[in-house]
Nucleic acid binder design. Structure first.
Lengths: 203, 203
DNA sequence: GACTAAATAGAGCGTTCGTTCTAGGGGGTT
DNA sequence: AACCCCCTAGAACGAACGCTCTATTTAGTC
């Protein structure tokens, strides 16, 4: 956070906006605050983003999408078994949330909800983020031998459960929802695996 | 929505605020808009809610909590089997969402995310809402014979999955996430039932 | 060294925000 | 009729909002 001197002005603005939107949402985040915390001026903001706040927010959501994609990818590369990977995801999500004093939830969700049906560009950026995350999970499950339609449906529920659990963890300031989510996702994944392959140990 | 002449001024203000917060969040909802749509004046708003916008928002979230509690209760009364009740919940949620042109998501979540760590009163109101909803699910599962700790954990994941799926459905303007969530919640619930009771048919 | 385009700088626009304030109506009790 | 009190009414405040505008500085090319 402190001193992002290694980044160019444009990148600094995007990163700052992404973090601010993650913590306080789209509406509560002002361009003045962004320019101050990014150590840029209002002139610079409008130079790089002539479309104003909306264009900047779309870019910031794209940044958040990339961030979480890397997070998922790392967990999937570390754990071979999909069920184990879900548990690891939930655990790491809980750790990150606690270490940020319950401030850094999903970098996309808040803006997505605020803008649903009101700011189409932002809604589309959020939809694209969710779709790409689901595709990542789907690919992981397919690689593990799950049928395509099963993997497609499971990917929806994995992302949705993680999303809901993170929201719940943030609001209740507790890691319990995410830990439970990890366990239950493993049970769910193994339930579908058991139907087509061999039985597995439970969580 | 149109013409709430049967309600008193105070009730009209609370209902309008709840609906506006549900659709566009806490920050984007102004007191002027509230007083206009509630057909009240600013003076009335401050008369009933001297604490201003925050006090009104807390009341509105409480109204949203009661609304969803009644929704859950109705589904639980209609369906005896918990797994079937989850499927019904998800289906009805999807129907309501589509019929509102994907505008009316969870009346609590948006404000909860916007205010997490910044507006304690609102965060607490949201936390209390989630806790009460979980208690309802927990009681339903306990009544169906689930052990207390199992019911406690399942209640978390049921609410979180519905929450995440509704968010996803709203952003992608599709009922698919909620339908999948209903099916998967039934599988999850039955997976735990199978461990302690008898095997059941799948979804 | 002169020319050009990119980037930075910040004053100021009109608007809207949450809030405060004082004044005015509408019934009920005495 | 006089009184009181709950409620309504809306003008006005300072602050903050997104955005526009005109300069000025910086960096690269001939």
């Amino acid at each position: 956070m402190r001193s992002q001197h290694e980044f160019g002005t444009r990148e600094r603005i995007v990163r700052t906006t992404s973090r601010l939107i993650q913590r306080q949402g789209y509406e509560a985040t002002g361009l003045k605050q962004i320019s101050q915390e990014a150590e840029a001026t209002l002139g610079s903001v409008y130079h790089f983003f002539p479309g104003g706040k909306r264009e900047l927010a779309v870019e910031a959501i794209g940044h958040g999408e990339r961030e979480f994609t890397e997070f998922l990818q790392a967990a999937f590369d570390r754990e071979d078994d999909p069920a184990a990977a879900m548990v690891a995801c939930a655990r790491d999500l809980a750790t990150g949330l606690r270490e940020s004093d319950w401030l850094d939830g999903c970098p996309v969700t808040t803006a997505a909800l605020e803008s649903a049906g009101r700011v189409p560009e932002i809604q589309q950026a959020a939809e694209s983020a969710y779709e790409n995350w689901r595709a990542l999970v789907r690919a992981k499950l397919a690689r593990a031998g799950f049928a395509e339609d099963v993997a497609h449906d499971l990917a929806h529920s994995v992302i949705n459960m993680l999303e809901g659990a993170e929201l719940s963890a943030q609001v209740s300031q507790s890691t319990a929802p995410l830990e439970i989510a990890g366990r239950h996702l493993a049970v769910l994944v193994n339930a579908y695996r058991a139907r087509h392959q061999v039985a597995t140990s439970d969580s």
